[in-house]
Write a protein that binds this DNA or RNA. Structure first.
Length: 489
RNA sequence: GGCCCCGUGGUCAAGCGGUCAAGACACCGCCCUUUCACGGCGGUAACAGGAGUUCGAUUCUCCUCGGGGUCACCA
């Protein structure tokens, strides 16, 4: 079988990660089977169009590493790929259903319907269209159409019997026809509804596997009535579980959950996001966790798809992103980190090859997300001189104000006399002093690092920081630290 | 509310009648160490509840409970 899958977003805004995962699974399934992945834009709701949303879809898919064989921008044999451009294709199919008795014209206005709905709901009932226009004579229908009265075309759902379909992961789903409403196929503006356009498009585009969100699970039996009415072969349905923010809320842009592009801006790597996302709701069945796109294509299977919703775990995404960052080579890392260093105001410190290497060494194992960097290194650009003298006291390093004062008093002139301000020289000098003084390394290095950073937690240690700061600034900070200690006496 | 779907540690998730119920994230402890991080080692922690079926249920069935979805001229 020539597998054809599609991703059919409506251009109503940004692409959240749930959508992206749907696209990913559809893409993987097509690629795994040597089939085609089709991009289709579902813009039948003219009121909800959002400027630029289509480009966002293209951009997101591309940076996520997915390509498409057919779509609005690349064309294809089954075009057009934008539903509004296919507008004229749907009506004939709807009329065919009218002729075969599977659909009918309806002249009830939205206002009338709202009224009836309100009345029924006021009594606690669930409104269902009452087939009010079903038995209108042909002549009457034609007369009204000739008068120019607005109308819709509705599906004529049988009064009884079962509607059902088979889902690749949920199995047989069956619902009684009496539960089903006569859904609108063609709207008053002549546009098809999503429900109808979907059936027509999936069929005319020869889609073999429909991967889409869970929210369509309960309406799919209705679609199948349509397939049966046309006598068409049904695609394989694969309904994907929802990605949740927590146990009771799904992820949504509206509630401030990050979109794919938000995550990219925050400094997440596309490969890490995709890798993580693939694992939310799908398992390869073994213990592997790291996948390249090609490995995902190999490993992907419908059987590995989960039936229950999954909560999006930012924590784990962060961890996975950190893993990807650690695996970058130094060159790629510094290229990505440099802009962050610049915004932190330490770009000038990262100009030489040695300095770059040093930054990579201290930063790469500590970077979970690139946007973290600025906050980690900003102290290098500017010392917050108001730091508390209490920072000098650290039990594990066996320091107290008295010890720190004497260390700094000894170390400042020693470093001033250092011929070369290099990591090696600083290392030998500082550790040599510790040994000579019979102190733990930490006892010497702690006050030096605190004075130079004003922080208890820093990337790298005293030696690295001193090297980065350079002789003048490092000594200035050491002297400042000493004077703070003296002032406390 | 009707209908549909789901229910293994805090989270992801393996399991598909017989397991001491994997693994990962997070958390905790220890080691390494120039703080933190990285790395190494170890630990806490789960089959929602109740009936069945069966020699035997996490696994099959039913009920309860919990959660989600859906009931638009939105997709």
């Amino acid at each position: 079988m020539n597998v054809r899958t599609r991703f059919a977003p409506s251009p109503t805004g940004f692409m959240h990660v749930g959508n992206l995962r749907t696209a990913l699974y559809a893409w993987l399934w097509a690629r795994k089977n040597g089939g085609s992945f089709i991009l289709r834009i579902e813009d039948t709701d003219q009121a909800r169009l959002v400027e630029g949303a289509e480009e966002t879809v293209y951009r997101t898919l591309k940076t996520a590493g997915m390509d498409w064989d057919e779509g609005p921008d690349v064309g294809g044999e089954y075009g057009p790929y934008v539903q509004s451009c296919r507008k004229n294709m749907y009506l004939p199919y709807a009329e065919q259903l009218v002729r075969s008795g599977h659909a009918y014209y309806c002249f009830c206005t939205k206002e009338e319907l709202d009224e009836r709905r309100a009345a029924v709901e006021a009594e606690g009932g669930a409104f269902k269209y009452d087939k009010h226009c079903l038995n209108m004579s042909r002549e009457e229908v034609e007369r009204r159409i000739a008068e120019g009265r607005p109308y819709v075309i509705r599906q004529n759902v049988p009064a009884d019997g079962e509607a059902s379909f088979d889902d690749a992961i949920f199995g047989h789903i069956s619902v009684s026809c009496s539960e089903l409403d006569d859904m609108i196929l063609i709207k008053a503006d002549g546009m098809p509804t999503y429900n109808f356009a979907n059936v027509i498009d999936d069929h005319t585009m020869a889609i073999t596997h429909v991967l889409r969100g869970m929210e369509y699970l309960s309406s799919t039996p209705k679609y199948n009535l349509l397939y049966d009415a046309f006598g068409w072969e049904k695609p394989t349905y694969v309904h994907l579980t929802t990605i949740m923010r927590d146990a009771t809320h799904k992820l949504s842009k509206r509630d401030g959950d990050a979109t794919f592009e938000d995550l990219i801006k925050l400094g997440y790597l596309p490969e890490a996001i995709i890798n993580y996302l693939a694992l939310v709701g799908w398992s390869p069945g073994d213990e592997r966790e790291f996948f390249t796109m090609n490995e995902l294509i190999q490993a992907f299977s419908l059987e590995g798809l989960s039936k229950s919703p999954a909560i999006f775990d930012h924590n784990k995404l962060r961890w996975m992103n950190a893993e990807y960052i650690r695996r970058m080579d130094a060159e790629a890392y510094i290229e990505r980190a440099l802009p962050e260093l610049k915004t932190a105001g330490v770009g000038a410190m990262a100009e030489t090859a040695e300095a770059k290497e040093l930054f990579v060494r201290i930063l790469q194992p500590r970077t979970e997300v690139f946007s973290d960097i600025a906050g980690i290194v900003d102290f290098l650009a500017r010392l917050d001189e108001g730091y508390s003298v209490e920072l000098f006291t650290n039990k594990k390093s066996r320091t107290n104000p008295e010890v720190c004062r004497s260390v700094l008093n000894a170390v400042i002139p020693m470093l001033e006399a250092l011929p070369d301000w290099t990591e090696n020289a600083l290392h030998d000098s500082l550790l040599g002093f510790a040994e000579a003084a019979g102190m733990k390394n930490g006892t010497v290095l702690w006050p030096v690092r605190i004075a130079m950073s004003g922080r208890t937690v820093t990337p790298g240690g005293a030696i690295e920081i001193a090297a980065l700061l350079g002789r003048n600034e490092a000594l200035r900070r050491l002297k400042l630290g000493l004077s703070k200690l003296d002032a406390e006496r």
